[in-house]
């Protein structure tokens, strides 16, 4: 009962037509975006999947009995049961444990790739778009070359030289992922570079660097975030593919793609060893795709629903 008044008060504060402060206006925008986002059941399903993934990764020590690498050879290749929900693999390791710990690796990969590619893409795109001229031509040519290159093959070649391993896989994926972000931020920058608030900042004597960082970049962010969410699925699939080929995370790390690879030889008789990690990859990348679709409808109304 005591919660009731504050809740309506909060709602009024969030929906009032005359926000009293910048903070309130920001909260209102977020709240309205959330309202339209949460009205979309498909997007909410995506969000739920990602929340579960993050929760699993965070609570891995609580959810499992070990760290997913303890071997119990007496228990090898057990079918799913009450003791081992998803069965055990060829070294007797509990597959449920490995899936839960694998969530950390998946998040580590997509997180690290995002941290690398978003700043690079934003920097290249906003500088090219805002400065223009030769800088634009050169930067965009380089971007186009990376865009034109087939992604998995390029990542394969990079890993071939750098050597297999989780960090190298991340680096290879990042090198093949940044270019669309540069394209998107450039396109956004071109539409706003002559906007009045940018001109106002310039007239006030703000430096080019300051305008790019404080005035242009924030306006590129929403498109970049949508793109990033949709790209997450692709990143997960490439990482899993590299893991499957033995070029990503190395044993005994419970990387899902590598787990499918080892399960492959037991596919005919012990289907669960390879099938369960594959389902995990499918569900998570589906989650990112659903979330990205929903975010696009909310953050990027121009393309809302039609593409």
């Amino acid at each position: 009962m005591t919660d009731q008044p504050t809740e309506t008060g909060l709602k009024e504060w969030l929906l009032s037509d005359t926000p009293q402060s910048v903070a309130q206006a920001r909260c209102q925008r977020l709240y309205l975006a959330w309202l339209s986002f949460s009205a979309n059941p498909i997007a909410m399903l995506g969000l739920a999947i990602i929340v579960v993934l993050v929760g699993m990764a965070a609570a891995a020590p609580v959810l499992t009995g070990g760290d997913g690498t303890e071997q119990a050879l007496a228990n090898r290749l057990q079918p799913p049961s009450v003791a081992h929900w998803f069965g055990t693999d060829e070294l007797g390791r509990d597959i449920y444990d490995r899936i839960v710990w694998g969530a950390r690796i998946t998040l580590y990969i997509v997180g690290l790739v995002a941290i690398i590619v978003v700043p690079i893409g934003l920097l290249v795109g906003t500088v090219a778009g805002y400065v223009g001229g030769w800088v634009d031509i050169i930067l965009m040519r380089v971007t186009d070359i990376f865009l034109a290159f087939p992604r998995l093959i390029l990542a394969l070649a990079f890993v071939a030289v750098l050597g297999p391993g989780l960090e190298n896989a991340v680096l290879a994926i990042a090198l093949t992922t940044w270019s669309p972000f540069a394209r998107i931020s450039r396109a956004e920058t071109l539409t706003i570079r002559n906007a009045e608030h940018i001109l106002a900042a310039r007239v006030q004597g703000a430096s080019t660097a300051r305008i790019i960082v404080h005035h242009v970049t924030p306006l590129c962010l929403s498109s970049v975030i949508v793109r990033l969410t949709l790209d997450m699925a692709g990143i997960i699939l490439v990482a899993a593919g590299l893991g499957f080929l033995g070029l990503g995370a190395q044993p005994p790390l419970p990387e899902w793609g590598a787990m499918i690879s080892t399960g492959r030889q037991y596919m005919l008789d012990q289907w669960w060893v390879a099938t369960i990690p594959g389902l995990a990859i499918l569900i998570v990348s589906m989650g990112f795709n659903l979330l990205g679709d929903g975010l696009r409808d909310v953050l990027d109304p121009r393309s809302g629903g039609t593409s």
């Binding site: 593919g241 596919m267 289907w271 499918l282 589906m286």
Partner: peptide, 22 residues
């Protein structure tokens, strides 16, 4: 369509072999 975007193709291939071949 989202399934097509999200599924790891190597895994789908293994499952398909398991079902339609084996």
């Amino acid at each position: 369509g989202l399934f097509g975007y999200s599924v790891p193709i190597f895994w789908l291939g293994m499952v398909a072999l398991l079902i339609f071949y084996a």
